[in-house]
Design a protein around this nucleic acid. Sequence first.
DNA 1: GTAAACCTTAACGTTAACTTTAGGTCAATA
DNA 2: TATTGACCTAAAGTTAACGTTAAGGTTTAC
Lengths: 126, 126
Amino acid sequence: MDYSIKQISEKTNLKAHVLRYYEKEGLLPFINRSASGIRRYSESDLEWLGLICCLKNTGMSIKQIKDFVELSMRGGETLKQRCDMLIEHQKNVESQIAEMQKHLQKVAHKIKYFTAQYEKYLADKS
Amino acid sequence: MDYSIKQISEKTNLKAHVLRYYEKEGLLPFINRSASGIRRYSESDLEWLGLICCLKNTGMSIKQIKDFVELSMRGGETLKQRCDMLIEHQKNVESQIAEMQKHLQKVAHKIKYFTAQYEKYLADKS
DNA sequence: GTAAACCTTAACGTTAACTTTAGGTCAATA
DNA sequence: TATTGACCTAAAGTTAACGTTAAGGTTTAC
C-alpha cells in the first residue's frame, strides 16, 4: 500500500524532481526507501504533502515549512508551537488579502476614471 | 514646482535606486532632467507613480506595467485597450484572492485538527 | 534481456525585482 | 574654495524556488 515517486507526482501535481528537491530541503525527512533505495511513499506521507502544498499555496516559504516539519518531528511537546505557527500564518495571509482588497479598490477607481476618459474621447471624436 | 529623486522617494516610499530602476525598465519614460542631467519630477509624474504603485501593489509585473505605460504614451487611441487591460487585471486579482481564500480554509481546517491534537496531548499528560 | 523507471551528486540556468558596488559628477554651504 | 552630501551611470550581485542537464549507475517490469 505505498506509492512510487511517479504516482505521487501525479497525485500532487509536483514533478518528481521537485519531490526530491523538497526532500533535500528537509520538507520530507520521513520518506521510507525500499531495500534498494527507492522512495516508497505511504498514505500518511501523502497527507503530509497535502499540508505542505496547503502551506505553499498560501505563500509560506520552503524555509518556514521546513521549520514547521522539524517541529513536528520533535513530537507532541511542540504541538502548541505548531498551532501558534499556523495561526500566525493564517493571520498573515488574511491581512495580505485585506491589503490586496484595499489596493483593488484603487484599481477600480482608476478603471472608472479611464472609462470616463474613453467616453469623453469617443464623444470628442464624433 | 518640481521634486528631486529624494523627495519623490519619501513621497512614494520607493527608494531612489528603485525609481531609477523603474525608469530604466521603461515605467517612467517621461521624467525631465536638469541641464546637468539630474532628474526633476513634476506633479503629474507623481500621479503616474501613484498608478504604477497601485498596479504593483496588486501584483502586476513590471513588464505588464511597462506595456500599459507604452500604450499610454500613444495617446487617446489606446484608451479602450488600457481600460480593458485594467479590467482584466482586476479580474485576475479577484480570482487570485478567491483562490487564496480557498486555500486558507484548508489552513483553518488544519488548525482545528492541530488544536484538537494539542488538547488531547494535554489531557493525556495530566 | 532490455527498456523504462529509479537513484545520486553536482553544477549551471532562469526569472523577477530589486540591491549593491564602483567610480564618478554636481550642488549647497562654510 | 574646499568639502560634504546628493546625484549620476553601468554593471555585477542577490534571493527564492525551482528547472535543466549531465554523467553514471541500479532496479524493476515485462
